[in-house]
Computed example of a mutant assay.
Amino acid sequence: MTTQQVADRFYELSQQNGYEHIQTELYSDNARSIEPDNPMFSNAEGIEAIREKGKQFSEMIEEVHGGYCNKPQVAGNFFTCTMGMDVTIKGQPRMQMDEVAVYEVKDGKIVLEQFFF
């Protein structure tokens, strides 16, 4: 798949809240995930570590009130999209989380995700 095809499929699945399916279908086994310096989130290497990071984040959420992912913009081997969620994290007040996500594609698979918020 081209970077544009991966980005299009990513967007299609994101609209169905298919983030686990995105990882299964579109991520390389040795993908990396880079987060801003934040005690709530950590970096991860390898698809299993990325899945575990997502599982841990999901367990922190008390309630999801909404979310979005905008259409990706593609440049070379990268695509980016803005996304966010309206959530209540356990023990914290309801909050809106917005971020810019950048993805790198090689050989038809996502090899890097990096988040900015």
Rank of each mutant, 00 (worst) to 15 (best):
E48A: 12
I61V: 14
P36G: 02
M95D: 11
G66H: 11
Q73T: 14
E104L: 08
Q73V: 14
D29R: 05
N38V: 00
T3M: 02
S33V: 02
V64C: 10
M60W: 00
M97G: 07
G18N: 12
Y68W: 14
M83H: 08
Q4P: 13
N43H: 10
K71A: 15
G67Q: 09
Q4H: 13
G108S: 05
Q73E: 14
I110E: 01
L13V: 03
E63M: 12
Y68D: 12
G84T: 06
S33N: 12
N70L: 09
D107F: 02
S14G: 13
M83A: 10
T80V: 12
R32A: 02
R9K: 13
K55Q: 14
E99K: 09
E48M: 01
V111Q: 00
S33K: 01
D37C: 06
H21M: 10
G76V: 07
R94W: 09
Q96C: 06
H65E: 11
G108A: 03
T88V: 03
M60A: 04
I89H: 06
P36C: 01
F41R: 07
Q56R: 15
Q73F: 07
E59Y: 07
S58Q: 14
P72T: 05
T3V: 10
A31H: 04
I61T: 03
L26T: 11
D37Q: 09
L26G: 13
K71D: 14
